[in-house]
Amino acid sequence: MDTIRGAIENTVSISQFNKGLAGRVFEEVKRCGAKVVMKNNMAECVLMSPAEYVRLMDEVNDARLTAEAATRMAHFDPAALLSQQQVDEALGFTPADYADTSEVEFE
């Protein structure tokens, strides 16, 4: 029952926009969260605050990064790692090249 009630309370007809009630709809979005805009009895779009949109996009991005990390860890082979010395030799770096990097943070 809560699902039906939520669906009814969180939908708005496109005709409300056509009747000049967009301001009221936007206030409801700010106060209550997202609204589904219906057009010809079909969901047309979802209205939400910019902050909520950014939060959702951050969550999606975090999920993608977590999935990528899990994939990489599933194929992790410690035997394939290179030591710092091996990388330095391959790229021609010497300890002097790192002398002025004490303020640099690596993540």
Rank of each mutant, 00 (worst) to 15 (best):
V12G: 01
E68R: 04
F17H: 02
R72S: 08
T66G: 01
D88M: 15
R55S: 08
T11V: 08
F93V: 06
D62E: 13
E28N: 09
A63G: 10
E103K: 05
G23T: 03
F106S: 07
V54T: 15
Q84V: 10
S13Y: 08
R31W: 03
Q16V: 07
L56F: 05
F26E: 00
R5H: 10
R72E: 13
A90M: 15
G20A: 06
Y53F: 15
L65N: 09
E28H: 05
R31N: 12
A99M: 14
K35H: 04
S15N: 04
P95L: 03
G33Q: 06
N40L: 09
M1V: 09
P95T: 04
N61I: 11
N41H: 02
V87F: 09
T66K: 15
R24V: 08
V104F: 08
N61Q: 14
R55E: 14
Q84W: 01
E59V: 05
V87N: 05
F26M: 10
S83W: 03
A51C: 06
T71I: 12
E44D: 14
I14W: 07
M38G: 07
R31E: 14
Q16H: 11
H75F: 13
Q86C: 07
L56I: 02
E107L: 08
C45P: 00
V37L: 04
D88C: 14
M38I: 15
L82A: 13
K35W: 03
A69L: 13
K30E: 09
R31Q: 15
D88N: 14
E27H: 09
T101G: 09
G23K: 03
Q85S: 09
D88T: 04
T94L: 03
M73D: 08
L47I: 03
R31F: 03
R24C: 01
E89N: 11
M38P: 06
A34H: 03
R64F: 13
I14A: 12
M48G: 04
F93I: 05
G92F: 01
D62T: 11
F93C: 06
M38S: 06
H75K: 14
E59D: 12
D62P: 00
F17T: 02
L47T: 02
V36A: 15
R72F: 05
G6W: 13
E89K: 12
L21C: 02
N61E: 15
